[in-house]
Write a protein that binds this DNA or RNA. Sequence first.
DNA 1: GTGAAAGCGCTAACAC
DNA 2: GTGTTAGCGCTTTCAC
Lengths: 344, 344
Amino acid sequence: MAATIYDVAALAGVSIKSVSRVLNREPNVSHALQEKVRAAVETLDYRPSLSARSLAGASSYLIAAFVDASLTLQHMRSGRGNDYLSRLELGALVECHEAGHHLLVELIDYGSPSLEARLSALLRALRLDGVLLTPPNADDPRVLDILERAGTPFVRVGAERDLDRGMRVHMDDRQAAQDMTRHLLSLGHRKIGFVSGPAAYAASQARREGFLQALAEAGLSPHAMTDGDFTFDSGRRAGATMLSDPRRPTAVFASNDDMALGVLAAAGDLGVPTPQALSVCGFDDTPGALFSAPALTTIRQPVAEMAAAATRMLLAAKRGEASPSQEIDYVLVPRASTQAPLEN
Amino acid sequence: MAATIYDVAALAGVSIKSVSRVLNREPNVSHALQEKVRAAVETLDYRPSLSARSLAGASSYLIAAFVDASLTLQHMRSGRGNDYLSRLELGALVECHEAGHHLLVELIDYGSPSLEARLSALLRALRLDGVLLTPPNADDPRVLDILERAGTPFVRVGAERDLDRGMRVHMDDRQAAQDMTRHLLSLGHRKIGFVSGPAAYAASQARREGFLQALAEAGLSPHAMTDGDFTFDSGRRAGATMLSDPRRPTAVFASNDDMALGVLAAAGDLGVPTPQALSVCGFDDTPGALFSAPALTTIRQPVAEMAAAATRMLLAAKRGEASPSQEIDYVLVPRASTQAPLEN
DNA sequence: GTGAAAGCGCTAACAC
DNA sequence: GTGTTAGCGCTTTCAC
């Protein structure tokens, strides 16, 4: 029913190999032949079968984003989407689409004891052209091992450490946190609290370091350091702890927006007016940051751009071109939630 | 290098057909043979090649979500994720994963004049086992035609109309909007404004109807009707228009959360205290709804559950089972943004 | 209950 | 420049 390469060859009056050559833009094909083939392809509305190509050739035209299974289940249960992942996918999707590739989303159970076996089986079953590794698992050595052994190109998106394995697209979380802290300092804050993210994320560590370094440069030490886990609730708890202390900070820097919004909520709970009595800033620029009261000062991560760049790197690797690791610029977005402290 | 079905057959001392039978759980296989094959599969860490299976057989083990290309580009440019799509994907992903299928995300350019040709070419190239059609394009007759002609099972997720084509998973937007309106009425509101969504979404129409019907039942007519396009800015404009009228409403029902947050922002701009002087409610329960001030009363759409159900229907269709259209329950989430009007 | 043989629709070597 | 011939790793058909 559907046209095959034989139908095209027959209609164009050439061999199937010639059709294949034209389709794959191989060199050494006469212009006349090209035209004949293109015409036949057009009239038959022909499109090569992905599976046949993938089975016979070296390429599957498939790129996969590896996504943390337990994180996904967690999001599902709470009825929430994953903004970071969504933006990442949009970026990857557009590049795949333009290059005639397809984007697969694969749930990976990083907690499974048989992770390695499953992963290598998956790679053999799929024959992926490339893999996008997403946080918080862009650094997992087990995965990197399997991927390297399978010879599958991969990009670690948003990975903090330069492991010199595979390719990498990231932004400078450390520097961004430093900038944000300087922003608070420049407003006149001296008593600044910090809410850290979960240790599983390398970015948590980087943001924390940036914060501490900026303070150190100003000859200050942190007013309070509290642990969070990137959730709203943990931010609220952290905020409650910091703000119920009589010696409370005039500003709190939370390692992500959800926690920053939690701090804002805690301030509301305790009757601490924001931003008058407390400046709060976050990190990520999630949807909620724009709509909170006051709107949240934060760091915008260009996730879609990072994913698009990563996808282009994968495509280039397929052509045999090596791409260097790439750093993408962040933007500090000042909004109403940070202002100069009242009493100075 | 990687094990093939021949390796497994050789190790187990059986024919490749027997291996295939065991792998596909076909009947009429002796227990002893099954065990031998399973053992060989285990020791070789064998996993069948997706492309070989798909080329030789009827199934590709691939399910695709069709996503609107222009909408995606719009989201990318604004640096935002797509919460609805993200939740939909999470739901589909989990089901695919459990069933040993893979989820493909396909960007579809619904605005292209050659949509039909591209789509049918895509279907032949991919040989999909099923397709998830997402709003606002779950009703597009061109797409339904192509899908039906190709014999590809599909589910229209979140589709408003029962076209009796393919399968459908939806929630009752009309009823939900009616409930929400009754909620406002029960609080004592009589002057209620409405901000509608874009006509391209069938849900816009349904929500509008539900609103009008609830009002009609109460013997009321809408205080104001304004057109929006589901964006924050359009909500802000609509809010500004309604609230600058001296005869302003005491409550505004916006067709989605982003617009409701826009209305809240407009109230802030004009110094109208919320929720004291103005109740606002939305629809969708997006991330921003929880963090706005005041937190937004809204309708929670169980998008992930809808997508999971849709995926299960696709899988069932593959087994030859017909699934009836399914309606998923919504939840009205009352928060601080709606309260009784001050002067009654 | 099990196996042999013939494709599925391509790409990759290798001729010419 | 162009065509011929083998596979790729499975499922399917049809024997036995």
